[in-house]
């Protein structure tokens, strides 16, 4: 198995939580893993990304080459578009479609949507609304992880185990909310993926 994933978002949105969960699940599965993160200045509301590489074979580079990513997984639609040159020919974009506008020159929503629509393989929906519906607004990163999970060759039970392990210090309720968010995101993405194949 091999999954090269560009995780993207805006500093403070919680992309590193996704990386932590997938990393823990991959370690349990005895997979090789490299995950380059961004710390420091850009965490203050700037664009942040993390390269997450999972493989059953040894991985050389911490960075994914251009055109090498199987997935772009983003909490913010413009941030998903920022990394297009990293996407492989058969790669999927999994993104929340609600813009996070903290700059003056943020593009119009229509042009963001149009740009995403140009790409052949996209899972984009309002992950914040889904998070609010099934859990809490703060769980949208878990909806995103769920939406990415059908494209990653790790059994969802193993990912749920990692979610449980990460959140159990905060209590059973938080675990349940995050697992509900994960499952909802996963179900929605499976539906989109199946429609694409049909």
């Amino acid at each position: 198995m091999k999954s090269d994933i560009v995780l993207a978002g805006v500093g403070g949105q919680g992309i590193l939580t996704i990386a932590t969960i997938l990393g823990a699940a991959a370690l349990k599965e005895n997979l090789c893993l490299k995950q380059a993160e961004v710390h420091g200045m850009s965490q203050r509301g700037g664009d942040v990304q993390s390269n997450l590489r999972l493989s059953s074979n040894p991985i050389h580079s911490d960075l994914i080459p251009l055109g090498g990513a199987d997935l772009i997984v983003s909490l913010e639609p413009m941030e998903a578009l920022r990394y297009l040159p990293f996407l492989s020919e058969q790669g999927w974009i999994i993104t929340n479609n609600v813009p996070f506008v903290n700059i003056d020159n943020y593009p119009e929503q229509e042009s963001i949507d149009a740009e995403l629509a140009k790409m052949p393989r996209v899972v984009a929906f309002d992950m914040e609304a889904m998070a609010k519906e099934v859990a809490t607004a703060r769980s949208s990163n878990l909806v995103l992880l769920g939406a990415a999970s059908p494209f990653i060759d790790i059994h969802p039970d193993k990912i749920e185990d990692a979610i449980r392990a990460l959140f159990i210090p905060k209590g059973e309720k938080i675990v349940d909310a995050n697992i509900a968010a994960f499952r909802a995101g996963r179900a929605k993405a499976i539906e989109i993926k199946e429609n694409f194949q049909n």
Binding site: M41, G45, D47, G67, G68, S88, P107, I112
Partner: peptide, 21 residues
């Protein structure tokens, strides 16, 4: 040598510099 085909960069993406909280 690697020689991947990759999508072109999106022209609408704006820089998002860090800022004070």
């Amino acid at each position: 040598l690697i020689n991947n085909q990759a999508p072109a960069a999106s022209q609408i993406v704006a820089p998002r510099p860090p800022m004070l909280c």
